[in-house]
C-alpha cells in the first residue's frame, strides 16, 4: 500500500476523530454525574445536524450562528428532559439503571419520529467549506479541519469549565462522591440538571460539526450513539484523556474501512471494535486491566 495513501487516510481519520471525541465527551459528562447511559444521545447530535442543514439550505446560515443556536436550544431541551423524566428515576442504583435505559431508549424513538416529521427522511449535508488545502502529498479538507478545530476549542472550554469554575467542581464532586457532595451542601439536583443539559448541548455542537463531513438523515442517530459509546468503551468510562485516544481509534477505523471496504462495512467498524474492546479490555485501552 502507498505510504501517501496511508498518510491521507490517517489525516482524514484523526480529523473526524475530533468530532467523535466531542460527542463522546458530552456522553461522558452525563454518565459521570448521573450514571445514566443515554441512548438518545445520537438523536441530539443528528437533530442539531439536520437543523443546521435546513438553516443552511434556507438562509445560508453560517456555522458560527448555527452552532451557538443549536447549543442553547439543546441545553434548554436537555434541562427540560431531565426535570420532566430523569429526575423521577428511582433512588436505588440498580433499578435506576434499568429504568434510565428504557427511558432514554423511548426518548430516542420519540426524537427519531420528531426529526422525521420536522426534517423528513431525506439525507442532508452542508456544502460549506468544500475546498481543500494541499500539504505536500496530502490534501486537507477544509470542512474536516474546521470541524476538528472547532471540536478542539469546545473540548478545551469544557475542560476549563470543569477545572476552574465552581460549577465544574460541583459536577466533578458529584461524579466522584454523591454523599460527599451532599454533605458539602452541593445542590446535587441542580448539578444533575445542568450536567444533562450540558451533555446534550455538547452533543448538538458535535452534530453541527459532523454534518460538515457526513451526510445524515433522522435514522442515523443510532449509529452516532453507538460510535460515541465505542469511543468511551475504548477510552474507559469517565476517563476524559482516554476518550481522545478512543476517538482517534474510531476515526481511523472509519476512515480506513471506508476506503478499503464498502460504506456498510465502514459503518460497522466502530461496533466491531466496541465488542472487541469489551471482550479484551473491559476497562478501556488505557484502563487498568481487571479494574
Amino acid at each position: 500500500m502507498h505510504a501517501a495513501l496511508i498518510g491521507q487516510l490517517t489525516i482524514d481519520g484523526l480529523l473526524v476523530g475530533g468530532v467523535y471525541a466531542l460527542s463522546a465527551l458530552g456522553l461522558n459528562v452525563i454518565f459521570g454525574v448521573m450514571r445514566i447511559v443515554n441512548l438518545a444521545h445520537g438523536e441530539f447530535v443528528i437533530g442539531a445536524a439536520l437543523l443546521s442543514a435546513v438553516l443552511f439550505e434556507r438562509w445560508h446560515a453560517n456555522l458560527f450562528v448555527v452552532l451557538p443556536l443549536a447549543f442553547v436550544l439543546a441545553f434548554g431541551l436537555g434541562a427540560l428532559i431531565q426535570r420532566a423524566f430523569l429526575r423521577r428515576l428511582p433512588e436505588d442504583l440498580a433499578s435506576a439503571e434499568a429504568t434510565s435505559l428504557l427511558m432514554t431508549f423511548g426518548l430516542s424513538y420519540f426524537f427519531v419520529g420528531a426529526w422525521l416529521t420536522f426534517f423528513s427522511g431525506n439525507f442532508r449535508s452542508v456544502p460549506y467549506l468544500t475546498g481543500a488545502w494541499t500539504l505536500g502529498p496530502f490534501s486537507i479538507a477544509q470542512a474536516r479541519l474546521a470541524a476538528f478545530v472547532a471540536s478542539g476549542i469546545i473540548a478545551v472550554l469544557l475542560a476549563l469549565l470543569l477545572r476552574y469554575t465552581a460549577l465544574g467542581r460541583s459536577i466533578r464532586a458529584t461524579s466522584q462522591n454523591v454523599q460527599g457532595a451532599l454533605a458539602c451542601g452541593v445542590d446535587v439536583e441542580r448539578v444533575r440538571t445542568l450536567s444533562f443539559a450540558l451533555g446534550t448541548a455538547i452533543a448538538a455542537a458535535s452534530g453541527c460539526l459532523l454534518i460538515l463531513i457526513f451526510t445524515v438523515n433522522p435514522e442515523t442517530g443510532a449509529n452516532v450513539t453507538l460510535a460515541s459509546f465505542a469511543v468511551i468503551a475504548l477510552g474507559g468510562l469517565g476517563n476524559y484523556a482516554g476518550t481522545l485516544v478512543g476517538a482517534a481509534v474510531i476515526g481511523l477505523a472509519v476512515s480506513f474501512t471506508g476506503y478499503f471496504a464498502t460504506a456498510q462495512v465502514a459503518q460497522a467498524a466502530p461496533y466491531v471494535l466496541f465488542i472487541l474492546v469489551l471482550l479484551l479490555r473491559p476497562a478501556g485501552i488505557l484502563g487498568k486491566s481487571g479494574a
Binding site: 467542581r169 466533578r172 464532586a173 460527599g180 454533605a183 458539602c184
Partner: peptide
Amino acid sequence: VLVPEGRHLFPEMTIQENLLVGGQ
C-alpha cells in the same frame, strides 16, 4: 454541617479543590 462516616472525599480532585467545594 456533617463530616460523614467514611469521609466521602472527592478522591480524584486535588486537596485544594476538595476544600473549595466545602466552602462553596
